[in-house]
Simulated scan of single mutants.
Amino acid sequence: MTRRFRVNTLLSGKLEELGVPPADVLRHAGLPAGLLDLPKPAVTTEELFALWRAVGEVSRDPAIGLKLGSEDRIERYDPIAIAALYTPSFAEALQRMARYKQLTCPEELRIVNGPRETSVEFLWLLATMTEPPTLIDLCFAWVVNIARRGTGVPLTPARIQLTRRRDPLPLLEQHFGCPVDYEGASNAIFFHNQDLERPFLTHNAELLSMIAPQLDQELNQREAEQSLPDRIRLILKRQLAGQRPTVQLLARELHMSVRSLQRRLTAEGSSFQQILEEARREMARHYLVHSSLELNETAYLLGYEDANSFVRAFRVWEGIPPAHWRELQRV
């Protein structure tokens, strides 16, 4: 997993167009003055959060994230967005976006299918602080912008859930055209399942066949460079969404037998249970910092029998109960 975020080289120009001086943003964020002039600017998770927090504060525009996430000029799209637009449907576009996100940052685009709705959530895997609202707005606007451009219709989400307090201005409701629930358990955008099946008018199989293999090759190379425990940890994090990962499911996803997997892990000096606990610990820290989930809800998402089992495990990891740990992070 890459540990740094690539910053879009076009960000500086976009900010200037919106009347936001990039130099002021970088100064406010405590970042190097020439960062956005680099050929391939990259930042840590903490620096990324500082950058987007500064964008919101310097611009003093509560809609700045929505504006930056709703780019109309396709020549400004990054390869991930272009590959998404060339897919046959919105559902496949989301899968491509989630897959290729791994190339550019330590972030997961988590897609969870329900009986009537599908949720999309952005998880910053190395974050130790709450993500800036401007960044959440941008990410959600980016997904909806691709959906609307691809389908050719003003597609609206089913609803949006945010952890932040209610905004007195109905900017998000007006932009997305759907209800927005504040002070929720997590930051997530929900789509009607039937909308995911909408075909993309921008589908172009020939152009997709030119772009996707390059992205897949880079992704496969990244995965080949990862150690087996690192690959397993990422897979288990994806599976930890209300289900209990098993060594059988893991072996199937890795296209190897259970015996071969266990033999490989033993050679690495590790085990399935050890890596599962590491993945649970990382996801537990994420949920406690970035959501208002109750402990029993967090325990469920991490695959524990009950809240008591989760609390006992967390005490072993951090030395204190999860509720106490969460309070310390918010001081």
Rank of each mutant, 00 (worst) to 15 (best):
S89E: 07
D181E: 14
D167L: 14
V180K: 00
Q194G: 05
R159F: 08
R166G: 00
H192L: 14
P157V: 07
A185C: 00
T130V: 12
I80K: 01
R165A: 10
D167E: 14
Q194M: 06
Q102A: 12
P115N: 03
P168I: 15
L94Y: 08
A81H: 03
G150C: 15
Q174F: 14
N187D: 14
Q95T: 09
F176V: 10
I111D: 05
A158Q: 04
A185L: 02
L171T: 06
E206M: 11
C139R: 13
F90S: 04
L94I: 08
N113A: 11
I80P: 01
L169M: 10
Q214F: 07
F90V: 14
L169I: 10
R165L: 13
T104W: 00
Y86I: 05
A91Y: 04
A98Y: 06
G177A: 15
L196C: 09
E92K: 13
P199G: 05
L201T: 14
T134V: 15
R149G: 08
A127H: 06
P154R: 10
P115W: 07
E92P: 03
M210G: 04
D78H: 01
V180N: 00
E131Q: 13
V144K: 02
P157T: 12
P157N: 04
A185I: 05
D181H: 12
V112M: 08
P170L: 11
T163D: 04
N187T: 05
L169C: 11
E107L: 12
Q174E: 15
P179C: 06
I80M: 10
H203E: 15
P115A: 12
R164C: 08
N204W: 12
R166H: 09
E121I: 05
G114V: 02
L103C: 01
P199C: 13
P88W: 11
E117V: 06
I80N: 02
F140L: 11
E183V: 10
A147T: 08
H175G: 02
N193G: 13
S186I: 01
P79M: 07
L215V: 05
L125D: 06
E121C: 06
R116E: 14
P170N: 15
G177F: 05
Y182S: 12
C178F: 03
T128Q: 09
A147D: 04
E131S: 09
R99V: 04
T128R: 14
F140D: 09
G114N: 05
L123E: 10
V144Y: 00
L169T: 08
G114I: 07
V112H: 06
S209L: 00
P106A: 09
A158K: 02
Y100F: 11
L125Y: 01
H175F: 14
F190W: 15
N145C: 07
G114E: 07
E108F: 03
P213R: 13
F122C: 00
A93S: 10
T151V: 15
T156D: 06
T151L: 07
L138W: 09
L109H: 03
L172I: 11
G150A: 14
F191R: 04
N204F: 10
A83R: 00
H203C: 14
H192K: 09
D78N: 13
A212W: 02
F191H: 05
C105R: 03
A83H: 01
F191C: 06
L85S: 02
